[in-house]
C-alpha cells in the first residue's frame, strides 16, 4: 500500500481495514469470528435469562468464547504482520469480511433455540479443539488445550438442557424440536474445507473436520434420542459464512457491536 493510500485510510478511520487473508490468517480469523459472534450472542442474554443460575452460565460460556476469540485474533494479527489487532479485526471489518459459521450468527430466539445452537456448536468444538491439541502449530495447540476444557463444559451444559427441554413439558419439547428443525441446515458448514485449509491440513497445522463428523453425529444423536427429540431427515445444508456470504442477521449484530468504534474514529477506549 502506498503512503498516500495510508493517509486516506487514516483520515477516514471508520473505513474497514484491509486484511491479507493468507490461508493461516484466514484459518485463525474464521475460528476467532465463530467464537466472537457466538460469545456476543450469549452476552445478549445477560440480565434476561430464564433463571439467575442460567444468567451466570450463559455469561460464563460467553466469556470463554470471547477469550478464545481474543487469542485467535491476536494470533491472526501476528501472522498477518500488518498492524491489525484484535479490536481492528472485531470492530473494523464489515459483514462481507466476517468469516464465521452461519450457525453462530443466528439470533438467540427463545432459550431452546439458544441452547440447540450452543449444543450443535459445542459438540463440534469439543471434538475440534481436542484434535487441534495435536496441531504442529504451537500457538494453535496451546489455544486448543484451553478451549477444549471450555468446550467440554459448554457441551455438557447445553446437552443437559436439550434433555430437560426435550423430555420436560409439551411446550418445551415443541420449542426444542422447532429449534432443531430450524438450525439443522446450518450444521454442515462446520465440516466443510476449502483449498487453503486443505493445505494447512496437509501440513499438520489444521485437522480435517470431516474426520470428526461421525463422532459429532453420534454425540448429537445420543442426546437427541435421550431428549425424545428427532433430527430432521433433510440433508440440505446452508453455506457461505466462511466466505462472507452471511444471513441478514449478522449486519445488525455488527452495527451494534461496532457502533462506538464507527462513531468515534480512532479513539482509544
Amino acid at each position: 500500500m502506498t503512503s498516500s493510500k495510508w493517509m486516506q485510510v487514516d483520515q477516514m478511520a471508520v473505513a474497514n481495514i484491509e486484511v491479507s487473508e493468507t490461508p493461516l490468517v484466514l484459518y485463525a480469523l474464521r475460528r476467532a469470528d465463530d467464537a466472537l459472534i457466538l460469545g456476543h450472542r450469549l452476552s445478549e442474554w445477560c440480565g434476561h435469562a430464564p433463571a439467575m443460575e442460567e444468567d451466570m452460565a450463559l455469561a460464563n460460556m460467553g466469556l470463554d468464547l470471547l477469550g478464545q476469540a481474543r487469542e485467535l485474533y491476536t494470533y491472526a494479527a501476528k501472522v498477518e504482520g500488518r498492524g491489525n489487532d484484535e479490536d481492528k479485526f472485531a470492530y473494523l471489518r464489515d459483514v462481507r469480511q466476517y468469516r464465521n459459521l452461519l450457525l453462530v450468527e443466528q439470533p438467540n430466539g427463545d432459550f431452546a433455540r439458544t441452547m440447540v445452537r450452543q449444543f450443535f456448536y459445542a459438540a463440534f468444538a469439543d471434538l475440534y479443539w481436542r484434535a487441534m491439541m495435536a496441531s504442529s502449530d504451537p500457538t494453535f495447540a496451546a489455544i486448543a488445550a484451553k478451549s477444549e476444557k471450555e468446550s467440554a463444559y459448554h457441551l455438557r451444559h447445553s446437552s443437559e438442557w436439550i434433555v430437560r427441554l426435550g423430555d420436560g413439558t409439551e411446550e418445551s419439547h415443541r420449542r426444542a424440536q422447532n429449534a432443531i428443525d430450524d438450525l439443522w441446515a446450518y450444521t454442515g458448514e462446520m465440516f466443510a474445507v476449502d483449498d487453503g485449509e486443505r493445505g494447512l491440513i496437509d501440513a499438520g497445522i489444521a485437522i480435517d473436520p470431516a474426520t470428526l463428523k461421525s463422532r459429532w453425529l453420534k454425540t448429537i444423536t445420543g442426546i437427541v434420542d435421550e431428549a425424545t427429540l428427532a433430527l430432521p431427515k433433510s440433508d440440505w445444508m446452508q453455506q457461505g459464512g466462511r466466505v462472507g456470504s452471511h444471513s441478514e442477521h449478522l449486519g445488525h449484530l455488527l452495527s451494534e457491536l461496532q457502533s462506538l468504534q464507527r462513531t468515534f474514529p480512532g479513539a482509544t477506549w
Binding site: 430464564p50 433463571a51 442460567e54 432459550f111 427441554l165 413439558t169 411446550e171 418445551s172
Partner: peptide
C-alpha cells in the same frame, strides 16, 4: 418468558 423453561 423463562417460566416454560423452569417448568420444563
Amino acid at each position: 418468558e423463562g417460566a416454560w423453561v423452569r417448568e420444563a
